[in-house]
Design a protein around this nucleic acid. Structure first.
Lengths: 337, 337
DNA sequence: CTGTTAGCGCATTCAG
DNA sequence: CTGAATGCGCTAACAG
């Protein structure tokens, strides 16, 4: 019991007003005379009073806290995304509680329970695959929730994100259009990510669409980091020597491919083409600059945060939103015959 | 007012017990018969009851929430650090509220106010330079707080981290020992980071210690990203053509240097040596592998989180802790004459 | 424009 | 081992 910190009554006493008035100015109610308003504000500063958040939350049934559970925050587009969420939430007077699931459903569920038990008013998840208990929990308590990094218009839960299937498909088409017929697709663990699975399906579909005698596409699963990319390209070259291009489902993997290739003296793009996914901040700086797919990480963060707060504030229903991703053509993919 | 969610009274009614008993089992009190305990737990599951965090916080005056304000979460060692904090806090039943300051004192202060007003029980900051209002605020309310990423044994606020001055100094000594006499030190914005300033001082001190005719060290300030590193090495080569090595105060900058050098066909380490700082996960994978300084980001996160929760739980005072960083010698630095 | 009053949901004495 | 009563600090009607 910290007796040092001022409560609303102390401010009331100090100003000779009632606690109701204090509460009013703390909440920006309009029906307070400017004079008393000033008086109250002064007293607050003097006593360095801050409303007790728990009491306020108990009264209003609102915590002004939103939870995000993300697969990882390290080496990836998620960092950018989280930063955007935090900023936007912050501007609107909300806080972000963060949990990391490592892509595991059980960890995600546990985190969600904890965060709920911590007062989170809404949840931001990644992807559309979650444990049934989780979705049940949210449904029963009618906790607003949105799935991000994906675009699934028919999902029961609103999605805000990009179409991974289509984007990967576009990437393959792009490569095909440049003359590449044998493509190694390098991706992270399938188990942990429905986004990766969608991208894989999309790439496969595009390859199939090219018809017989069309595109040979082989997949290489690896760890989602630079070392993974490096190992994968080595393997790809080994077992799929005819491939002329690598499509990496993350720029991080592409960076690994760069170094794997550099190590064995293969020149990009003259001898081998590389394409990424994410458009991380350094992708235009590497040499050669990386042709990749821009994912609207920042917009996505801003969008979810805005919509969720708007819903919480005024009940505006969250509208599923597709954010465009697009190919950024730079120098790492060559046209070949 | 969500009338769907169960309150403690509903559970009491359901089990025919009193709310006090329910409260007891929810809090793991020992003085409850195993039988009733079971009964209560069943009812909780059935009604899918979760204690209201605000009410609980109001009663106990504890929110089980810890705030971290970090300069950035993108492209850097901070992501790893934050992940470690989150995991550790999570294991101990605490939540992490995150705010990003971009290294600006005013943003940091604003964030702190918000987080305090949100119920954060303790704060994790980076570096030792903070606005006086901030420190005053914490002091008056006696909010536990620790400074991280630095080591300053005499600081009034406990620090948990590494000695940036010493580490940078060691790095210069290491390079000098390899025969380098003209070194370009590349770093991010000085204004935003006392860690950077400490590293700069340390590097300078080491150079001076080498005495007259010793080390020529020139500093290049740039943006803290890959592009910044690339631009800086170009400038360094331009105005300090005699330098034979670049000491980068972040691996991210070193990566930029790699590409800047690659672009103009300068070979590492044969023609130019590069040293980093951070030991990011990819630093051993790049080609050539990067000689850098390992910063104990993960340990630091675990340490702060553990100590802070221990303090909140049982009042164990936070003990300032120096975490060792050390040089990881790999292939990017050559010995020269 | 300002004051009074009644809970918000739970932890916690204190009895029994 | 269990129940009844009190109050945490604040917001939100409702009065005036």
């Amino acid at each position: 019991m910290n007796r040092k910190i001022g409560k609303i009554r102390d401010v009331a006493k100090e100003t000779g007003l009632s606690i109701a008035t204090i509460s009013r100015v703390m909440n920006g109610a309009k029906n307070v005379s400017p004079a008393t308003q000033e008086r109250v504000l002064d007293a607050c500063r003097k006593l360095d009073y801050l409303p007790n958040p728990a009491a306020r939350a108990l009264s209003t049934n609102k915590s002004r806290t939103i939870a995000a559970i993300i697969p990882t925050i390290e080496h990836s587009v998620f960092a950018k995304y989280v930063a955007a969420i935090e900023q936007t939430l912050s501007e609107r007077g909300y806080s972000l509680v963060l949990a990391i699931s490592n892509g595991k459903e059980d960890l995600e569920l546990a985190a969600a329970r904890k965060l709920l038990g911590m007062g989170a008013e809404a949840f931001i998840l990644s992807g559309s695959v979650h444990s049934p208990e989780l979705t049940g929990l949210f449904a029963r308590r009618s906790v607003p929730c949105v799935y991000t990094s994906i675009w699934e218009p028919h999902s029961a839960v609103p999605t805000i994100g990009y179409d991974n299937f289509m984007l990967a498909s576009d990437a393959v088409a792009f490569l095909a259009n440049k003359g590449h017929r044998n493509i190694a697709a390098i991706h992270g663990p399938l188990n942990d990510s429905d986004r990766t699975r969608a991208r894989r399906s999309g790439a496969g579909a595009a390859a199939d669409a090219a018809g017989t005698g069309g595109i040979a596409l082989r997949f290489f699963e690896t760890s989602l980091d630079v070392a993974g990319g490096k190992a994968a390209i080595r393997e790809a070259l080994d077992v799929f020597g005819t491939c002329t291009a690598a499509l990496c489902f993350s720029d991080v993997l592409a960076l690994g491919v760069y170094f794997g290739l550099s190590e064995i003296g293969v020149k990009i793009p003259e001898e081998f083409s590389v394409m990424g996914f994410d458009n991380l901040d350094w992708s235009g700086t590497v040499v050669p600059s990386l042709t990749t797919i821009n994912l609207p990480a920042r917009e996505m963060g801003v969008n979810v945060a805005s919509q969720l707060t708007a819903f919480l504030e005024s009940g505006e229903t969250v509208v599923p939103t597709e954010l465009a991703g697009h190919i950024i053509e730079r120098d790492s993919v060559a046209r070949i015959e």
